[in-house]
Design a protein around this nucleic acid. Structure first.
Length: 405
DNA sequence: GGTCCTTTGAAGAAC
DNA sequence: GTTCTTCAAAGGACC
C-alpha cells in the first residue's frame, strides 16, 4: 500500500536542526510536503501526508465550496487558498494508541462500530501502565514538536469551523442521564452507586462484552433489558455496550470489588503520571489513595479527563491550594500546559534536557503486537517503526504490515 | 453525502 | 486561572 523510499527514511529537512529520531519522524509522519519540491503534502513517493487533506476534497462547513469546486478561474486569493492544504492537528497520545490498537480490538471483539471500539480503547488506555502510556505520550510529544516545526504559523484555531458544530445538548443529556439511578449505564462518566467515579482499570478480569442491542429509553438509568454476551477480552466484567440511540456506554457493577489492574498496581488514569517523563523519573511515586481516586460528582461531560494527580505533579511549583482545587478541577491538565506539554518541562527540570533516555530500553510499541492485529500501516505508522528503532536503538525489525500477504 | 457517535488529549476561546 | 469548546481517527448508523 505504502512504499518506503529506497534507502529508508532520510532527513528531508536539513534546515531543521533535529536529531535522528526526530528526523525519522519527520520523514514519516511529516514528509516533505512543505518542501517546495513536494507541494500539497505529497511525500517523495507521492503519498499524501496523513496530516494533510487536499482542499480539493474539502468543503467548508459554511457552505463555501472548496477551491477545487470552483470551476471558474479563481482570483489570486482563491488560488492562494487553493494551494493551502488543510493541516490537521497532530495526534495526541490516545489517538496514536487508538490507531495502533483499533485493529486488535476489532479482531478480538468483532465489533466494527467505532464508537464502541473507542470506548473499549478508552478503558484499555486507562488500564495501561504508566510506562506503556508514556510511550504514546512521548510519541505524541514528538508529533507536536515536529508539527510545530513544520508548520510554525499553524494553530489549532486554523481548523476551527472546519467541521460542523456538534450538538452539545445531546452530550449534556447523556451526562445527566448518567447521573441517575444506580447500576445504570453512564456515558463518559464512570461512577458506582455511591456516586464515586470509578477508574475503569479497577475492574479486573477480562470477561464478556455485554452488548445491548436494544434501544435504551431516555431515562436516567439504562434499561439493559436485552443483552448479548460476546466473548471479548477487551471488555471487562460489568461493562455494557448499550445501544441507547447508538450510544454505547459502560456500566460498572457497584458491588464489584476494586482490584488492581494487571498492568499497574493502580494502573488507572488516577495514578497516571503527570507526564510520561515524570512517570519514568519516579516510577515508585506514591500511589493515590482511594479517596484521591474518587472523582467529584459532576454533571459535566468530561469529568474524568483531567486527573487531579496530573496537575499535582505537573505543577510542582504551584501552591498547595492546587491540590484541593485539583481534586475538583477538571482542567488542570490543559491549563497547566502553557509551556506546551508537561512532559517537556518536566524533562527539562529533571534532567536539564528534553531527551528521554529512560525510553531507550522500552519495547517498541509498534512491534509489540501481533502483525495480524495491526492495522494497515500508514506512512506514519511505517516510519514510526523506523523512528522508534532509531530512537530507542533497537534492532530494526522488518516492518509489520497487515497487508503484507 | 454529511453528520453523529465515542474515546482522550491538546490547544484555543471565553469567562 | 478556570472552564468550555473544538478537533484530531475510525467506521457504522442515521437523516
Amino acid at each position: 500500500m505504502y512504499s518506503i523510499p529506497p534507502g529508508g527514511f532520510r532527513h528531508p529537512y536539513p534546515a531543521l536542526a533535529m536529531n535522528a529520531s526526530m528526523s525519522s519522524l519527520v520523514s514519516s509522519r511529516f514528509p516533505p510536503h512543505v518542501v517546495p519540491h513536494h507541494p500539497h503534502g505529497l511525500h517523495q513517493t507521492g503519498i499524501p501526508h496523513p496530516a494533510i487533506v487536499s482542499p480539493a476534497i474539502k468543503q467548508e462547513p459554511n457552505g463555501e465550496l472548496s477551491p477545487a469546486a470552483h470551476t471558474k478561474s479563481p482570483g489570486p486569493a482563491k488560488k492562494e487558498e487553493e494551494k493551502k492544504p488543510h493541516i490537521k492537528k497532530p495526534l495526541n497520545a490516545f489517538m496514536l494508541y487508538m490507531k495502533e490498537m483499533r485493529a486488535k480490538v476489532v479482531a478480538e471483539c468483532t465489533l466494527k462500530e467505532s464508537a464502541a471500539i473507542n470506548q473499549i480503547l478508552g478503558r484499555r488506555w486507562h488500564s495501561l501502565s504508566r510506562e506503556e502510556q508514556a510511550k504514546y505520550y512521548e510519541l505524541a510529544r514528538k508529533e507536536r514538536q515536529l508539527h510545530s516545526q513544520l508548520y510554525p504559523g499553524w494553530s489549532a484555531r486554523d481548523n476551527y469551523g472546519k467541521r460542523k458544530k456538534r450538538k452539545r445538548e445531546n452530550k449534556a443529556d447523556s451526562a445527566a442521564e448518567g447521573e441517575g439511578g444506580g447500576g445504570g449505564c453512564f456515558v463518559r462518566s464512570f461512577r458506582n452507586q455511591a456516586g464515586t467515579e470509578q477508574p475503569p482499570s479497577l475492574h479486573p478480569s477480562p470477561a464478556h462484552a455485554i452488548i445491548n442491542t436494544t434501544r435504551i429509553p431516555s431515562r436516567p438509568s439504562c434499561d439493559c433489558s436485552v443483552t448479548i454476551s460476546v466473548p471479548c477480552p477487551s471488555i471487562k466484567q460489568g461493562e455494557h455496550y448499550s445501544a441507547r440511540n447508538k450510544k454505547p456506554c459502560v456500566q460498572y457493577l457497584p458491588q464489584e470489588k476494586m482490584i488492581d489492574s494487571p498492568a499497574s498496581s493502580h494502573g488507572s488514569m488516577l495514578d497516571s503520571p503527570a507526564t510520561p517523563s515524570a512517570a519514568l523519573a519516579s516510577p515508585a511515586a506514591p500511589a493515590p489513595t482511594h479517596s484521591e481516586q474518587a472523582q467529584p460528582l459532576s454533571l459535566t461531560t468530561k469529568p474524568e479527563r483531567h486527573h487531579p494527580h496530573f496537575s499535582l505533579i505537573s505543577k510542582p511549583s504551584s501552591s498547595s491550594s492546587s491540590s484541593s482545587s485539583a481534586s475538583t478541577s477538571s482542567s488542570s491538565s490543559s491549563s497547566s500546559s502553557s509551556s506546551s506539554h508537561p512532559s517537556i518541562s518536566l524533562a527539562i527540570s529533571s534532567s536539564g534536557s528534553q531527551s528521554t533516555p529512560p525510553l531507550l530500553s522500552r519495547p517498541n510499541p509498534f512491534t509489540s503486537l501481533h502483525p495480524s492485529l495491526l492495522s494497515p500501516p500508514s506512512p506514519f505508522h511505517q516510519a514510526a517503526l523506523h523512528s522508534h528503532h532509531a530512537l530507542f536503538q533497537t534492532q530494526p525489525l522488518s516492518l509489520v504490515t497487515k497487508s503484507a500477504d
